[in-house]
Structure formats: structure tokens, C-alpha cells
Amino acid sequence: MNAALTPFEQRSAARVVAPARPRKLAKVPFVELADGRLQGVVSSGSDIERVYVSSVSADHTFHCSTNNNRPCGGIRLSGCNHLRALADEAVLQYGIDRVARYLRADLPDGASTGWDVLVAIKARHEATAGAPVFARFLRHLSYLELAASTEPVTEMHWFPAGGAVR
């Protein structure tokens, strides 16, 4: 720690965690560990205009529905392909240990994929609202549409752009 900085300056920025491995965004454009869930947006395999909001919670429940809250047609007792894709991408983004710890999963030796995490937690289906997750995804997309600028983004005024805060 730099002794010239005040304690506030030393802890005023959030640490950015680099992805465990690079991932492709076409199939799962948004994945996060938030609100006690692994949650994200997964593209449809059959319709380019449809996406699914999928989630697996730390209390071992899962849900998958379209962005307009229609249940996924592939949901079975063990989940669907959207959940599997979400879990696999989360492992790429965060690493299997972090995902398993967040979801409170006891992984067997040799576990290396998102599917291994899903199998380990033995989740059950429980309907949850996907709208908040989809809204966060859309908000993240809106940042891509901003013109390049050195001016602060009002919504993120709390986030220091660099340098010391005086």
C-alpha cells in the first residue's frame, strides 16, 4: 500500500477480476455471480431473436425462461441445456472453484466443468423472476453504445477513473 495515499484512497476502487479463461460471448453473452445465484442470459439455439434467462441459486434451485417469462421447454428434473451452457461459461469466466464455492457445491475429485457443478448440487426447479437479470444485461449492453469519452458516466460517478481523489 502506498503510504502517501489516505486510507479512503487506498480502498476506493473495486478490484477487477480477470476471467479464468477467455470465453466466447455468442452463446452466453452475460454471466454473473450475484444475488446468491449464478445467473445469466443464454442465446436460443433455434431462434436468433430469442434469449433465455437462466439461474442456479446457492440454495440449489434452478430456473430457465425466455426474456418475456415463458418457461423453457427443455426444463427437466436436472435442468436444461441453457443451464448447462450457463454453468460451463461461468466456469470459464470465474473458475470452477469460485463457482462451486459460490453455489455451495461439494465437487468430486476431477470435476472440471459447469455440468459437474450442476450434478454436485442436485438442484430442483423453482420458478424465479428473470426480469431483473435481463434488465442488468440490457444495462450492460447500453454501455457499449456510449461514444468514447473521458467524461464520467453519471450512473457510475462513484467509480474512480484513476488518480488520487482529493
Score class of each variant (00 low, 15 high):
39 Q>W: 02
140 H>C: 15
136 R>F: 06
82 H>G: 08
56 V>M: 08
87 A>F: 03
51 V>T: 10
20 A>L: 08
155 E>D: 13
97 D>H: 13
115 W>E: 01
2 N>V: 02
137 F>I: 04
66 T>M: 08
148 A>Q: 09
73 G>D: 03
39 Q>F: 04
54 S>H: 06
158 W>A: 12
118 L>F: 01
115 W>L: 05
105 A>G: 06
41 V>Q: 03
92 L>I: 00
77 L>A: 14
106 D>Q: 11
43 S>W: 01
156 M>H: 09
165 V>N: 04
95 G>C: 08
80 C>S: 07
107 L>F: 07
127 A>P: 02
44 S>F: 12
150 T>L: 15
33 L>H: 06
10 Q>V: 06
7 P>V: 03
131 A>E: 11
164 A>C: 11
28 V>L: 05
30 F>H: 12
3 A>V: 13
122 K>H: 10
140 H>N: 13
8 F>Y: 13
131 A>V: 10
114 G>E: 01
115 W>A: 02
139 R>T: 14
54 S>F: 04
146 L>T: 12
50 R>S: 13
154 T>P: 02
97 D>E: 14
137 F>N: 07
61 T>S: 00
84 R>V: 15
25 L>W: 01
47 D>E: 12
32 E>H: 00
104 R>A: 08
153 V>L: 13
31 V>F: 07
19 P>K: 02
52 Y>T: 03
159 F>V: 15
73 G>C: 04
89 E>A: 14
77 L>E: 15
44 S>T: 07
31 V>I: 13
106 D>P: 00
153 V>K: 02
119 V>M: 10
136 R>W: 05
30 F>E: 06
58 A>R: 14
159 F>D: 03
36 G>I: 10
19 P>I: 02
98 R>S: 09
55 S>L: 15
55 S>K: 00
101 R>A: 15
164 A>T: 14
21 R>I: 07
74 G>H: 12
75 I>D: 08
139 R>M: 13
128 T>C: 09
79 G>K: 04
